[in-house]
Design a protein around this nucleic acid. Structure first.
Lengths: 171, 171
DNA sequence: GGATGGTTACTCGGATAGGAGGTGTCCGAGTTCTAAGGG
DNA sequence: CCCTTAGAACTCGGACACCTCCTATCCGAGTAACCATCC
């Protein structure tokens, strides 16, 4: 069980975007430099967030990325599912009916108990992720985070954000 | 986010072993054939369970595998951690301090808020997995599972289990 | 007939190739700003 | 002086290699049962 590293980068980027002004955008290259990753690689994950309806992308010299909706309405679950895909971590391969002792298909009508148990646990995981909202994490960072780190983040946002004059919802 | 397929096989094997008599063992080859997987491959995962103290292995012609402790004391979490490793799914790479805007190390003394949030969710996941005990899953299978499937499992166990310190019944 | 030593066959265990998915990088399509040229 | 238009620069987007980890497999070490032999 391992989450891809892109999840971490995606969450960090989302938190940066939360701190921007309304309608402003930030280029992916600025985010990539801030976190020391390749811009082309980061774009790959940011595109997944755009496809999921969490981010919006604006092309052109003044373009970039921004949140598609309020930070209160974005949870860590949304980001994780956008990057990792909606499939559950546990996929039942139905190995119970792969052996030589074949039974009629009707004997396997009920779902596998193992699969049910694993999905129960995974539902708890997703519920916990859904409870972690971006707005809460940002608020916690601003109040309990190191003041120097908070100040540095504000400086970075103010330096690289680009106020958008005409809002285009085209993607 | 994807769990390895070995987890599914390991859980199935564990449930089979629950149905055996006290002290009896079952060869890995029988389990592999039952689930249609390569025995050499299955052994790899079973060894992980042995190393974790969940299974016990007995060498020799009458050897095989058996549970190391009562089914009530084995949870799905134990099996998942044994196969997948104890590391959490989310590993914080500390990309917050990888950018060009370096701050003194003291600014990063407090743990990353993102990491804390992800680990909170993962603790919920593990707690849910720990609540799923083998004994409960077996009981649910026996009462709510398809009768034909339950009977087939009992036949399989009776056919392949080998009582310890006794003459093996010739088949 | 009983004990004993050697043989056999079966088991687990670790070391070894193959393949899928994630990681990292490149170049191209599209859009907006800029600036020069003409009316 | 103002409008038009061509150019250029910056942005995102998709397509292409590389690398790590999981999957799958082989052969060797060890052990208990079996059997022939000896007492």
């Amino acid at each position: 069980m391992k989450l891809s590293e892109g999840v971490e980068a995606a969450i960090h980027c989302a938190l940066v975007l939360v701190g921007m002004n309304e309608g402003a955008t930030m280029p992916g290259a600025a985010l990539a430099e801030q976190f020391g990753v390749s811009s082309s690689y980061l774009l790959k994950h940011l595109n997944a967030l755009v496809a999921a309806g969490i981010f919006e992308s604006v092309p052109g010299p003044t373009g970039g990325y921004r949140l598609a909706r309020a930070a209160e309405d974005i949870s860590l679950l949304d980001i994780v599912l956008a990057v990792e895909g909606p499939q559950p971590a546990f996929r039942c391969g139905e190995i119970r009916q792969r052996g030589p002792a074949k039974l009629p298909a009707s004997a396997y009508a009920k779902p596998c108990g193992i699969n049910a148990a694993m999905l129960r646990a995974e539902r708890a995981y997703r519920a916990a992720l859904a409870a972690e909202r971006l707005s809460d994490i940002v608020a916690e960072f601003r109040t309990e985070g190191d003041p120097r780190s908070v100040a540095a983040s504000c400086v970075f946002v103010a330096r690289h954000q680009r106020p958008q004059k005409s809002i285009s919802t085209k993607r």
